[in-house]
Design a protein around this nucleic acid. Structure first.
Length: 453
DNA sequence: TGAAATGTTGGGGCG
DNA sequence: ACGCCCCAACATTTC
């Protein structure tokens, strides 16, 4: 067996982002070390996936090439080309499914088509058996008499040249061992309270498994099995309400892949075609976009989220919904711009999940939030960051403000601002847009879209 | 996995 | 005792 990773020469809008590359570097490093411990190696190549795999296969005269299938449009084209090339070269192609609980073409509605609404999709999934995960290979792995050439990991230049990702290691341990630790921490310590705590961004109430899942360091079947195992003694599945909600979140990931597979154009185009004509706002020099990206919108919960993203490569899901709603509704900038920023900065950037998330927020996707559902950043802050711990952690210049004014500093009396050492427009920005005005304009833009329909 | 406007209900103060 | 008003609490509708 010869384990191979090929770093593609990919360009364009869905080439791996900077945060993805950071994670990949460490994940490959961990995988390489693990394989070495088992007497094997990780062979790294770069360039065309098809050419690289054909070359390695020829070098060791491989009988067959094995891989796990993917669902992104580019990957599907690549796999088809690989199949054909292997066939021509007289080698066997063996493709396996390992990234989902259920394959997108095995789940269908009563008309035999793809689902477009989550609830019936997930109900249908719950009626199916989830295959048990296979144990990982243990002990010594066999290898060829002579190992093929490999590119040193450093030569892929995956790590950022600027010190942007310096704090990432405090928050993440890429690799299979880190994934297993995260899973077992969650199941043992947080899963039962998941229903109550998952929406509170200052807690570690979520699983934080998304990057591990994206990179295949853990599979959803392993997660399913671990959750089921935690309730085995009492013979109940799911073991509790927290587990049930958590598994349905895994279900949203399944749904996202289902949609990407059946509607591959949604990575760039709205599923609801009329939204292609949405009157987005002009943004000369990307002034509004940059303020959002840099966490300088003047809305504390939004800025906290954007800074958490920049600092850790991740953002709590509740806050993702808030900042996404803010970009699409308050700033009225195209959801694709937000998706591109998430794509570059999230360590869990995933084409299926990112596409579903942004189309959901923008109201133009499958089973999406209606467009008029505009999040109020002050209320979201008051509801989900009641004690202000999240905002104080990521927007420290507001830390001395009392809770009452923390989520809307522009409404605080002068003396309270002075006492908290806050000067709006200087130590912290004025609101980039007025909430009431922005909301009204967003709704008017939506009416315009409907009128033209 | 909204928010805001609008409508309804019912307790309590008051004449 | 009774009607009236106020208003909070809750429900419904609309965006």
């Amino acid at each position: 067996m010869v384990p191979v990773y090929v770093w593609r020469d990919s360009e364009g809008e869905f080439a791996p982002g900077a945060a993805t590359q950071w994670w990949l570097h460490h994940s490959l490093q961990a995988l390489g070390e693990q394989l070495t411990e088992q007497g094997s190696r990780l062979i790294i190549r770069r360039g065309s996936v098809v050419e690289a795999l054909l070359a390695v296969a020829a070098a060791v005269d491989a009988e067959a090439v094995y891989w796990t299938r993917g669902y992104e449009p580019d990957v599907r084209r690549e796999e088809a080309a690989l199949r054909q090339a292997l066939s021509q070269a007289g080698r066997t192609a063996r493709r396996f499914a390992g990234s989902l609980l259920h394959e997108p073409d095995e789940v269908s509605n009563q008309q035999g088509g793809p689902f477009k609404v989550f609830t019936p999709f997930w109900r249908s999934c719950l009626n199916r058996e989830v295959a048990a995960p296979k144990p990982p290979p243990h002990g010594k792995l066999n290898g060829p008499a002579e190992w093929p050439a490999t590119v040193p990991l450093e030569e892929l230049k995956l790590l950022p040249t600027l010190p942007w990702a310096d704090a990432f290691p405090e928050h993440w341990t890429p690799g299979e061992a880190g994934a297993q630790r995260a899973l077992h921490r969650f199941v043992a310590a947080a899963m039962q309270a998941y229903g109550d705590e998952r929406d509170l961004p200052d807690r570690v109430g979520t699983s934080r498994l998304s990057p591990h899942l994206h990179f295949g360091e853990i599979s959803p079947r392993q997660i399913w099995a671990a959750v089921a195992d935690s309730g085995r003694e009492r013979g109940v599945f799911p073991p509790n309400r927290g587990a049930q909600i958590f598994l349905s979140e895994v279900g949203w990931r399944e749904f996202a892949h289902h949609l990407l597979y059946h509607f591959p154009s949604t990575t760039t185009a709205p599923l609801r075609a009329e939204f292609a004509r949405f009157p987005w706002r002009e943004d000369p020099d990307d002034r509004l976009l940059k303020a959002w990206q840099q966490g300088r919108t003047g809305y504390p919960i939004v800025d906290a989220g954007m800074r958490e993203l920049w600092t850790t490569g991740w953002m709590h899901n509740r806050v993702r919904m808030v900042v996404a709603s803010f970009l699409v509704k308050h700033l009225r900038l195209p959801w694709q711009r937000g998706a591109a920023w998430f794509w570059d900065t999230l360590v869990d950037a995933d084409l299926a999940n990112n596409t579903l998330g942004w189309q959901w927020t923008a109201g133009c996707g499958a089973d999406a939030a209606p467009y008029f559902r505009v999040f109020n950043p002050m209320l979201q802050g008051a509801k989900f960051d009641r004690e202000g711990e999240y905002v104080r952690r990521w927007v420290p210049e507001l830390a001395k403000l009392p809770n009452q004014h923390l989520h809307c500093p522009w409404e605080a009396p002068m003396d309270i601002l002075a006492e908290a050492e806050v000067t709006l427009g200087k130590t912290y920005p004025h609101p980039l847009v007025d909430h009431g005005t922005a909301r009204a304009e967003a709704l008017a833009a939506y009416q315009e879209l409907k009128r033209e329909a």
